[in-house]
Simulated scan of single mutants.
Amino acid sequence: MAELHRIHPVDVEAPVPSPSRAPYERIGKADEELPPSAAPHPVPVPRPKKQRSRCCKCLCWTLLSFVILIVLIGATVGILFLVFHPKIPKYSVDRLGIANFTIDDNMTVAATFNLTVTMRNPNKKIGIYYRGGSHLSASYNGTELCSGTFPVFYQGHRNTTVVNLLLSGDTQLGGGLLQELQEQQQTGTIPLVFRGKVPVRVKLGSLKLPRITFKVRCDIVVNSLSANNNISLRSSRCKFRLKL
């Protein structure tokens, strides 16, 4: 008896199933086949703010310290002002004596001045130590004629002191300046400028402050610069400045 064979119908139009792939292969292929518009964008990572916050804190502390320092200085100055009531010292040129004033053929002036200055300290609780290293000068029309130094001493509270200052020196004048000086000698109105830079230490009660400099300028007008003559002061005006 012949053997029978069964024939099953086959659907030739059905798609042939593709072999399965590993998950990583699908992911890689999917990423490669995605269009550029569909590709994922990187997420920006925020920068750390620690460094900026540290700089802000440092700046704030610096400003705060500066403000506190200014407040403390202002409070100290205010307390000292209320306690001591400081007043500016006063200076005046009372007399000018000419020991020597000669002009040689080279237009060199040799001058020796004796200057009498009155110093007034109007403060009740403040004393003044006049220290070494001072410089005094007498000039005519911007040209220094002679110079000297200020004595070293202590001026107490509410004290008035009269000092005699000796200034001497040699200076060569130009022709125009010498002619101008001779003309003013004849008219009897000769302007002179006396300047002083004096290092001092101010004493507040029992406290001595650091060294500072007193700067004094006196503008005077005299009738003559001849030696051994009576020199009269036509005008005298002094200004005081403090240099820290």
Rank of each mutant, 00 (worst) to 15 (best):
A2C: 02
A2N: 03
A2W: 01
E3M: 08
L4K: 05
L4F: 01
R6V: 06
E13M: 05
S18H: 04
S20N: 04
I27W: 11
G28S: 15
G28K: 02
E33M: 05
L34E: 12
P35R: 03
P36K: 13
P42V: 15
P44T: 12
P44W: 00
P46M: 00
S53N: 15
R54I: 15
C55I: 15
C56S: 10
K57P: 01
C60V: 12
S65L: 11
F66V: 11
V67K: 02
V67Q: 07
L69Q: 04
I70T: 05
V71K: 09
V71R: 09
A75Y: 04
L80E: 08
L80M: 15
L80W: 00
F81G: 02
F81K: 04
L82T: 08
V83P: 00
F84T: 08
F84D: 13
F84Y: 15
H85D: 04
P86L: 13
P86Q: 13
I88G: 05
P89D: 13
P89L: 06
Y91T: 11
Y91H: 10
Y91K: 00
S92V: 15
S92I: 14
D94P: 00
D94R: 12
D94W: 00
L96M: 14
F101M: 06
D104K: 09
D104T: 14
M107Y: 15
T108D: 13
V109F: 08
A110K: 09
T116Q: 13
M119C: 09
R120G: 01
R120Y: 13
K124D: 13
Y130Q: 09
G133K: 02
S137Q: 11
T143N: 03
T143V: 14
T149H: 08
T149F: 03
T149V: 10
F150E: 04
Y154F: 14
G156V: 06
H157T: 15
L167E: 10
S168F: 05
S168C: 02
S168I: 01
G175W: 05
G176P: 00
L177Y: 01
L177S: 06
L178Y: 04
E183N: 11
E183V: 06
Q184T: 09
T187C: 02
T187K: 03
T189H: 09
I190G: 01
I190P: 00
L192T: 05
L192Y: 01
P199Q: 04
P199V: 07
L204R: 03
S206H: 09
S206V: 10
P210L: 00
R211F: 01
R211S: 07
I212V: 14
T213F: 08
V216P: 02
C218A: 12
I220K: 02
V222D: 05
A227Q: 14
N229C: 07
N229G: 04
S232N: 15
R234G: 12
S235L: 04
R237M: 06
F240W: 03
F240L: 08
R241S: 13
R241E: 13
